[in-house]
Write a protein that binds this DNA or RNA. Structure first.
Length: 570
RNA sequence: UGGGGUAUAGCCAAGCGGUAAGGCAACGGACUCUGACUCCGUUAUUCGAAGGUUCAAAUCCUUCUACCCUAGCCA
């Protein structure tokens, strides 16, 4: 029988990032769906006793993306909801595509999302059992060795509208099939010479039932079993057996496998498996401005259009992680989008809402000026520096306050000044008064232009009576803006992102050639203490994370996680 | 042209014969030392279409339409 190994999460699994689960322990949502309805009926009818067992079965041939997160949340979440079990199983039946690099990253991603598997299995653990089952099928006259080439099999299969034809090898004797299959296993043939096929119905309207190939020869090195095998089971044959061995009750997969379900059921029926698991299909995740195809993502990486699988713009879990998304936000997103059988495309605004909501109460805020514009306070003493008190979080008073340096020479955002203010603009313009966050009211008295007519400096006056916290209430200003002190400011690098994929005028989703904007920004002094993966709200801008790899003691690089919403339209 | 699926608001999505939940987005307004947050309000006389059954239909029946999946020795 199969050997079962490594049944617990290992502490020393490769974890490239410090795990920061801002939302704390996972709480299963109250939400329900059609799969839960099926399970509840099964529980009621005691179809599988009172057991619920699911699994997340990725093939270790690439990095996980947010579409996989939907499946992970569904499978693990469902098991939690019904006090059942959920396995992580690597569906590694095709050695030429798979690699340990991917099994390590997948384990890391599942853990990062906050789930713990009850068992960790490999489909390859069951190769011996699968071989025995195949032999049993042969003995029952339900499988045969076929010598047709791949092209011939294709031709014999018929088409969508034409039935298939019987293979000339279909009526080989059981004894001959047994002998041939064993020779296949023993490496007596070359790749492609022979296959084992299920004997079902070449006239079936369902093409999957037209004597599907269930074993092929592949003299390839397998990441788990090495050269132990040279025949490998096909998905349609292997998957039901994997599920059945593990005692899976509900085998949840995506819609494109609906047509394979009769074959899934057929395999277990021939093997007379008691209480066979049932396959249930749901619609895979699509999100606007995101492309989840593994092939396409790989092309982006290979072409150098992104920096790697963990580029902050990528929909991969490692990418989202580097971008600053929290596991809690992703889980919340998966809960909110629901589970159904209709193909749909979720608005990316939903995802953005989830990360804003998660970060809002968790993160401290800092003042950062992306495009600095010099401000001189003409009536403030040269050389004087005072410290003003600013709250770390408007949402959470327990986060306390910090002191921020204020002096005659400051910087504000270029966007916060207009030469000719448009209607409704209430930031800086000549003659207007605004509050500098945490400090004073300042009035813009004049501005300085360079030779090109660009505004290079603002000359302002401040009103000492208006200091924050003084209780001053004689007059109000509409605008409050952020600023940094000129002499103590930290030079930091900030990257803001727009969508990697955008829709063109024909409604096609295309690669956005210009999705990164880099700023040489100025941050308040305290940001010099930021560590890799620290998240902040940049006041009036959005949420940012110190890049995991590029931030160190001397250099600070921030990635924009998501901007703040704004109802200001110029 | 076979077979298998799916259609409820701009986007997700409940609903399972008793008179259209919720979220996101949008739009008003209140509040605001973040044009954020929060709060309050608005947004489907109608459920892909047309018939039928019923006192009553998004839900049942019939026909039709659109879209998705499917002819790997991939998963």
């Amino acid at each position: 029988m199969c050997e079962i190994r490594d049944t617990t999460n290992k502490k020393d699994d490769i974890i490239r990032f410090r795990i920061q689960n801002l939302k704390g322990d996972y709480k299963m949502s109250e939400s329900t769906n059609f799969i839960h309805a099926i399970i509840e009926k099964d529980l009621e009818n005691k179809t599988y006793g009172d057991q619920v067992c699911t699994r997340f079965p990725p093939e270790p041939n690439g990095y996980l993306h947010i579409g996989h997160a939907k499946s992970i949340c569904l499978n693990f979440g469902t098991a939690q909801k019904y006090h059942g079990k959920c396995n992580l199983r690597f569906d590694d039946t095709n050695p030429v595509k798979e690699d340990v690099e991917y099994v390590d990253s997948i384990k890391g991603d599942v853990e990062w999302l906050g789930f713990k598997w009850d068992n960790l299995f490999f489909a390859s653990d069951y190769f011996q059992k699968m071989y025995e089952c195949a032999t049993e099928l042969v003995k029952k006259g339900k499988a045969y060795v076929c010598d047709l080439t791949a092209d011939e099999i294709k031709a014999y299969r018929g088409s969508l509208t034409q039935p298939g034809k019987h293979s000339p090898f279909r009526d080989r004797s059981i004894a001959e099939n047994l002998e041939l299959f064993e020779k296949m296993k023993n490496g007596e043939f070359n790749d492609g010479d022979k296959v084992l096929r299920a004997k079902i119905d070449m006239g079936s309207p369902n093409i999957n039932m037209r004597d599907p190939v269930i074993y092929r020869i592949s003299n390839a090195d397998h990441h788990n079993t090495g050269d132990q095998w040279c025949i490998y089971p096909m998905y349609d044959y292997a998957h039901p057996i994997e599920d059945a061995i593990e005692g899976i009750t509900h085998s949840i997969c995506t819609l494109e496998f609906e047509d394979h379900r009769p074959l899934y059921d057929w395999v277990l029926a021939q093997l007379e498996w008691p209480q066979p698991p049932q396959q249930i299909e749901f619609a895979r995740l699509n999100i606007t401005n995101m492309l989840m195809s593994k092939r396409y993502l790989k092309a982006l990486v290979d072409n150098g259009q992104v920096s790697g699988w963990d580029d902050p713009r990528m929909p991969t879990l490692v990418g989202l992680r580097r971008r600053g998304y929290t596991p809690g936000a992703i889980r919340d997103f998966c809960d909110r989008i629901g589970v159904s059988k209709s193909n749909s495309t979720v608005d990316i605004a939903m995802l953005e809402h989830c990360i804003r909501e998660d970060l809002q109460t968790q993160v401290e805020s800092k003042m950062v000026v992306l495009n600095p514009l010099k401000v001189t306070i003409t009536n403030y003493p040269e050389g004087q520096v005072e410290e003003v008190e600013v709250e770390n979080s408007k949402e959470d008073e327990t986060k306390g306050n910090r002191m921020v340096k204020f002096s005659k020479h400051l910087f504000v955002e270029q966007e916060d000044f207009m030469l000719a203010p448009s209607k409704g603009y209430f930031r800086l313009f000549k003659g207007n008064e605004v509050r500098f966050k945490g400090a004073y009211f300042l009035t813009c008295q004049d501005f300085v232009l360079d030779d090109g007519g660009n505004v290079v400096e603002l000359l302002c006056t401040y009103d000492p009576k208006t200091k924050s916290g003084s209780g001053f209430s004689e007059r109000k200003v509409k605008g409050t803006i952020h600023w940094v002190d000129g002499s103590s400011a930290a030079k930091i690098k900030v990257r803001a992102y727009s969508y990697l994929m955008v829709e063109n005028e024909n409604g096609e989703t295309i690669f956005n050639e210009d999705s990164v904007k880099e700023y040489q920004a100025l941050g308040e002094e305290s940001i010099k203490g930021a560590s890799p993966e620290d998240r902040f709200q940049f006041f009036r801008h959005g949420y940012y994370i110190a890049d995991a790899f590029e931030t160190n003691a001397s250099e600070k690089v921030f990635n924009q996680i998501v901007d703040l919403k704004s109802s200001w339209k110029k």
